[in-house]
Nucleic acid binder design. Structure first.
Length: 494
DNA sequence: TTGGGG
């Protein structure tokens, strides 16, 4: 950490001490004074203050050199301008400070490529609102320049305002800031969870790739987000509704996703549906697919034993790019992910089922749903969420007759209904069993424990089972619309 | 002027 501290000491020496400072930038100076002072050669020199020091001079024009930690979206102000908010941090103020920009058109606003990029701000004003400090960029006399972050050695800004004049020490300070960023990447937060560790009814931050945004008819927006991990297994109510004929839902949205959208979803890891009741101004930017996002202070709950993310009134959406520290962290894990099988059963793959389809490799449900052909044979690892019928008496008569049993299967990537056809039923259950034996097998599949004397749990936890599935179509004129899944070559063990 | 974690 010594290396990280060194640049600041270097910078301290370059900066005049309080007593030497141009009086125009001292606390209490009239707002009209400028932070720029004429150098000996006549060119403007800019005195960069640490953010913490700048706060001592509210109302004065100051110059700052800091890293961008959060990127807001450009929107129309209530006046005539466009506005944009960035959060910036430097060594003196880890919590950072919000900077508000105004401009006649969006092209004049800073367009930050990635959090962790560096920004130089000339002649901005420190203001206070509700006891909190802000930086205001005034389009009449402020100017800015944006530089790439720590990975770059390029000293020219990739964007600067028309009036921006580079200062003598810009390159040096930029290099120091980049060195500091190596050890202090902005944006890593305590509350930041991965999808694999989300919990009901708590609030947390989530850094995710937004795969799609869908507006429901009632104005609710559904964001399909993903970080490569699996959401935790959910719990299912112990009481099965034997009267209900309608199958359990396969997804939270009303209508299934169009196939062209479905086929863009990744085959490994869970896609969380995040519901937003109002339009956060960043959401349209997410649809362009340039940015990852940090969802700050969001919550989630389980609905139909499926995870549902919810954007609260107090939630915020911040844009990140592929270069952001938190994103790089996730991409590294996704790219090196060897285990494609559900994270929850890596060390405890159940041996409840025997499968015959040995030649086939493991396939996730999403991989099959997005498979190029309607017919698909594969082996997968799933939990049995529900069964219809599930009572032994119904099962016996069904299996003896000519009808199917419908199972609802899920893995971290998707849910599907799969049918056990008459011919496969005896194989699946291991022969024509007594009602008691059938009940025992079905209960094991559904995660219903054997009769216990006391303290019967309210929820069940179905085991992971290996299972062979094949898909087929009912109608060749509508192959995808009539696609069905069928279990084969699978036997439930005693 | 606007905007200020809605």
């Amino acid at each position: 950490m010594e290396e990280a501290a060194a640049p600041e000491r270097e910078r301290d020496r370059k900066r005049p001490r309080d007593g030497d400072m141009d009086p125009s930038t001292s606390a209490g100076a009239p707002p009209s004074t400028a932070a720029a002072v004429a150098g000996a050669s006549g060119e403007a020199q800019y005195v960069y203050l640490p953010v913490a020091d700048a706060l001592k001079a509210p109302g004065a024009r100051v110059c700052l050199f800091a890293a961008v930690s959060e990127i807001g979206a450009a929107v129309r102000s209530r006046g005539t301008d466009f506005t944009l908010t960035l959060r910036i941090v430097d060594q003196s103020r880890a919590s950072g400070i919000s900077v508000t920009f105004f401009a006649d058109n969006t092209a004049l606003l800073p367009c930050v490529r990635s959090s962790g990029d560096v920004i130089s701000l000339h002649n901005v004003v420190i203001t206070m609102h509700h006891g909190e400090f802000f930086v205001t960029y005034n389009k009449k006399f402020s100017s800015f320049a944006l530089f790439e972050g720590k990975a770059s050695t390029e000293c020219r800004p990739y964007q600067c305002s028309l009036k921006y004049h580079g200062s003598k020490h810009d390159n040096e300070i930029l290099t120091q800031m980049r060195m500091w960023l190596v050890y202090n990447p902005p944006g890593l937060k305590d509350l930041e969870l991965q999808l694999r560790s989300i919990k009901s009814d708590s609030t947390f931050d989530l850094v995710c790739k937004v795969l799609d945004v869908h507006e429901a008819s009632n104005g609710v927006r559904i964001l399909y987000v993903w970080d490569g991990t699996d959401t935790p297994v959910t719990e299912f109510p112990m009481i099965l509704d034997s009267k209900s004929v309608s199958p359990p839902p396969l997804h939270l949205e009303g209508a299934p996703l169009p196939r062209e959208v479905l086929c863009t979803l990744p085959c490994v890891g869970s896609v969380l549906r995040v519901f937003a009741n109002r339009l956060f101004k960043e959401i349209p930017h997410l649809q362009k697919g340039i940015y990852w996002a940090r969802f700050c202070n969001i919550t989630c709950k389980q609905e139909f034993s499926m995870w549902k993310g919810i954007l609260l009134p107090s939630s915020r959406v911040r844009l990140l790019s592929n270069e952001d520290g938190s994103v790089v962290d996730r991409l590294n894990r996704i790219n090196t992910q060897i285990h494609r099988q559900p994270m929850a059963c890596l060390c405890s793959a159940s041996d409840i089922a025997d499968v015959e389809y040995e030649r086939a490799g493991y396939t996730t449900l999403m991989e099959s749903l997005t498979h190029g052909e309607v017919t698909h044979k594969f082996k997968t690892l799933v939990r049995v969420v529900a069964a219809h019928p599930h009572r032994a008496s119904d099962l016996c008569s069904l299996l003896a007759g000519n009808r199917c049993v419908r199972l609802t299967l899920e893995d971290p990537t998707a849910r599907v209904h799969a049918f056990i056809h008459k011919d496969d039923g005896a194989k699946f259950f291991g022969g024509f069993l007594t009602a008691e034996a059938l009940t025992r097998k079905m209960n094991r599949l559904l995660g219903i424990p054997e009769d216990t004397e006391e303290g019967a749990p309210l929820t069940r936890n179905p085991p992971w089972i290996w299972c062979c599935l094949k898909s087929y179509r009912l109608n060749k004129n509508d192959p995808w619309g009539t696609r069905r899944y069928r279990i084969f070559g699978t036997e439930i063990r005693d």
